[in-house]
Design a binder for these strands. Structure first.
Lengths: 181, 181
DNA sequence: GTCTATAAAGCGATAGAC
DNA sequence: GTCTATCGCTTTATAGAC
């Protein structure tokens, strides 16, 4: 039921999706839905939590890993791509949330903490001297994870590009650049 | 009135924004809105058209410019950033549209044409041999313009980063990469 | 656990006065 | 060009039967 709700929230938007739509997609009536969840908002909250738990784990794994900040930055990019693909519907929903309710604001707050941790890791890698010095770390963090997050809008796990190939391409583009060597 | 509508559509979402919300933000009643536009959908259509006209012009300028495909690719990245900032509210709305009505599907079709033109330009630059050969041009196009488009979620023209600095940072990151030389 | 029926509220849009 | 008032419809959510 949660999967059906997330799919509809992503396809039509949260507000444009009615409980009746979710019920219809499952072949039941609205009342059957309300037997399992207290409100439409609770369905959103559970979906956002799934995405946040995954992303928080990816950042924590990179923060506690051995190696240089540079290595850990490359690791968190890869782990983020993996979480994004493994929980694509939930993460897509999270990235489209804009603080329109208490549930959404709470999710946004957790997301801001993740973003701050990511920016901190970029700053550490820059301090190691392994990243070019003419780019502001905070700006780099926004662009880098903006690129990663944009995956949700087009990537399909069933398509021709594997998750590994995808993570490799993003790492190559971001760290080595497009220019031929 | 269009500006007020776009601002609310972006902040609360199109479906969560009522004509009453727009009227209230302008200090008038719903009926006053309907004197100027036939429907809520028409407000959306006008906003999406503003964004599409700007982006189409950016792509056309790069397509008809002199120079190598590589130079024209760098130009279209810059022009896209400029349009995105100059028409940020309208472009933000465009990037959040998902084909939920005939108006949205029509806008998505125009956007797909723009994306195809951008991918074609990346392919031309790759054929020139100036881009590395181990990355698929279509994948590069999605990642590159995914990064550019992600600007709408955080960039503020009133902030510390100028449009020129922003376009420079994106070009540097994308073409030369993050790694120190 | 699912159903029918319905309450209570909000929505887009229109009619008609000023 | 803006107002009040209202129509017709959809929405979230609940009550109570099976």
């Amino acid at each position: 039921m949660l999967a059906a709700a997330i799919e509809l929230f992503n396809r039509k938007g949260y507000d444009a999706t009615s409980i009746g739509d979710i019920a219809e997609s499952l072949g039941v009536t609205k009342s059957a839905i309300y037997h399992h969840v207290a409100s439409k908002d609770q369905l959103l909250a559970e979906a956002l939590d799934e995405a946040l738990v995954g992303l928080e784990a990816a950042v924590r794994a990179a923060a506690t890993a051995d190696g240089s900040a540079h290595d850990r930055l490359r690791l968190v990019v890869r782990r983020s791509v993996e979480v994004l693909v493994a929980h694509q519907p939930a993460v897509t929903l999270l990235l489209r949330v804009h603080g329109n309710s208490e549930t959404e604001r709470s999710a946004l707050q957790r997301r801001r903490t993740i973003d701050a941790d990511l920016a901190g890791l970029v700053r550490l890698a820059a301090d190691e001297g392994v990243l070019r010095r003419d780019l502001d770390p905070d700006l780099v963090s926004r662009l880098l994870f903006g690129m990663v997050n944009s995956l949700v809008e087009w990537y399909r796990a069933s398509g021709p590009v594997s998750v590994d190939q995808l993570a490799d391409a993003i790492s190559t583009l971001a760290f080595e650049g497009l220019a031929a060597t």
